[in-house]
Design a protein around this nucleic acid. Structure first.
Length: 448
RNA sequence: CGGGGUGUAGCGUAGCCCGGUAUCGCGCUUGGUUUGGGACCAAGAGGUCGUCAGUUCGAAUCUGGCCACCCCGACCA
């Protein structure tokens, strides 16, 4: 602990790394390129999962789970997809270890236990899922098939960064199959809208929706749509993607259905995903030099209550008051933490909860007991106000709503200030060199 | 995969050039004083110096191999 987070302006990337560690979100694991998500960080991810999962269900999707391992022959069936991911795959080649005869107590890979066919650890699940869909889909009556999977995937990246790029990451991947191209495109766009809506209303992160260029699109897709958020260093972060797959995977895995007219046709596919990278986006979009700033809708703790006391007896009096307040807030669905640790001073606790981004802090001491008041502080602006104890429970909901909105507005204002129009290529280059941010420019859509 | 760097207590580090059994801070334990913005004092616990080998009477320190991680590039959610 301590005021050791480097300032955002000095070294953005270092600031980010320190913040992730200090706020108790995640740390590098001893395993190459992998990350340990700590309980506090994971609880934020769970909040994201819950909100997203509800939105998926509301749009007619169901959850399922498919295997971690993809036999190489399945993996290579859709050529573009296979080629696109080939350079970053982890592969299982053996299924057994044995004791090393020349080095007691150590294990070696048993050369006799080589697999007939290597297993690819999924970098994405299109292959394994489409090979399964082949069995599930016979008739137009089986469609649309709307499935989502919460899973981990492995992409053997050379350089990793906490939440933004790790060898293994958690995500959700939707895989749908449809009777017509139109319906599949609609699904693709619908899910992009779901992501954009989630980013803006839950993460308080304004995003730009768009379509990827030929060079950037998902391997195996006809079209890739994405949402991009603006981070405080003026750089874009891709926060979610939605792909229209056309009939590419249906053809690769021979997934056909009988139409009403009795004809056989290939189904139309989509896939879409967001990952724990959203955690990185959330952190980079809002936080300041004092730590994390969480939008209330994703905060695992909405309100932290810090008692200020000199004696045990004083703490008891405060605790009695706090119990009433906390239970009335909890009844309204808010998560409340009473920080009654006696080995830290209030100032330390203030700083710690600010570091962790808890939206609202309530301090209550002997002075408040006498006056029937509390001190309410909001994390985003650090404004404090003294409030009547009796009014707290009823005014917290509005305060949290206000914080959610004000975080969004701040991000939106910043984002808009960093969008610069350019009419010529020279202008574009100049803006990117000098100002950064987004550039609104003309483009004819070609590679050149 | 190219270029650079680091590895010493739970964390962050000094010592390395010039070899003699490891420094300091945070944290932890105990006791006391404290508590409205990151408390203080005292005592205490905690280390095969990444790993394997070599040189040497003696290696954290010198030499070689290996491993891991970090930073910068290319690639990506």
């Amino acid at each position: 602990m301590g005021k050791e987070i480097p300032s955002r302006s000095e070294d953005y990337s270092q600031w980010y790394n320190e913040l992730v560690k200090k706020a108790d979100l995640a740390e590098h694991s001893d395993v190459r390129g992998c990350m340990v998500i700590k309980p506090y960080g994971y609880s934020i991810w769970e909040k994201m999962q819950q909100a997203l999962d509800k939105m998926f269900k509301d749009t007619g999707h169901s959850n399922a789970y498919f295997p971690l391992f993809v036999p190489k022959s399945l993996f290579e069936a859709e050529e573009q997809n296979a080629e696109g991911f080939a350079k970053e795959c982890a592969i299982v080649t053996h299924y057994r270890l044995k004791t090393d005869p020349s080095n007691k107590g150590k294990l070696i890979v048993d050369p006799d236990a080589k697999l007939e066919e290597e297993l690819v650890v999924r970098p994405t699940s299109e292959a394994i899922i489409w090979s399964t869909y082949k069995k599930w889909i016979q008739s137009y009556r089986d469609l649309p098939l709307l499935i989502n999977q919460w899973a981990n995937v492995v992409r053997w990246e050379m350089r990793t960064r906490l939440f933004l790029r790790t060898s293994e990451f958690l995500w959700q991947e939707g895989h749908t199959a449809h009777t017509t191209s139109d319906e599949a495109v609609k699904e693709t766009v619908q899910m992009l809208d779901v992501y954009a809506h989630f980013a803006e209303t839950f993460m308080a992160l304004p995003v730009v929706k768009g379509r990827k260029s030929e060079g950037e699109k998902f391997p195996g897709a006809i079209d890739t749509y994405c949402i991009e958020g603006m981070m405080q260093d003026g750089k874009a972060l891709q926060a979610g993607t939605s792909h229209f797959l056309g009939q590419n995977f249906a053809k690769a895995f021979n997934v056909q259905f009988a139409t009403k007219e009795g004809k056989l046709e290939y189904v139309w596919g989509t896939s879409w995903g967001v990952s724990t990278r959203l955690m990185g986006a959330l952190i980079m979009a809002h936080s300041d030099d004092d730590g994390l700033i969480l939008p209330p809708k994703l905060a695992p703790i909405h309100v932290v209550i810090v008692p200020i006391f000199r004696s045990d007896e004083e703490l008891v009096r405060i605790t009695n008051k706090v119990d009433e307040l906390a239970s009335s807030l909890r009844k309204q669905g808010y998560s409340v933490k009473f920080d009654d640790r006696d080995n830290y001073k209030p100032g330390f606790k203030f700083a710690e909860w600010e570091l962790k981004g808890v939206p609202v802090r309530i301090a209550i001491g002997p002075r408040d007991l006498d006056n029937g008041t509390v001190e309410v502080a909001r994390r985003d602006t650090k404004e404090k106000q003294v409030m009547k104890m009796d009014d707290v429970a009823t005014s917290i909901p509005a305060l949290l709503d206000n914080i959610q909105e004000s975080i969004y507005k701040k991000a939106l204002t910043f984002r808009n200030s960093m969008i610069t129009p350019a009419d010529t290529f020279d202008e574009l280059k100049k803006i990117l060199d000098e100002k950064g941010g987004f550039v609104s420019a003309h483009w004819d859509g070609t590679q050149e």
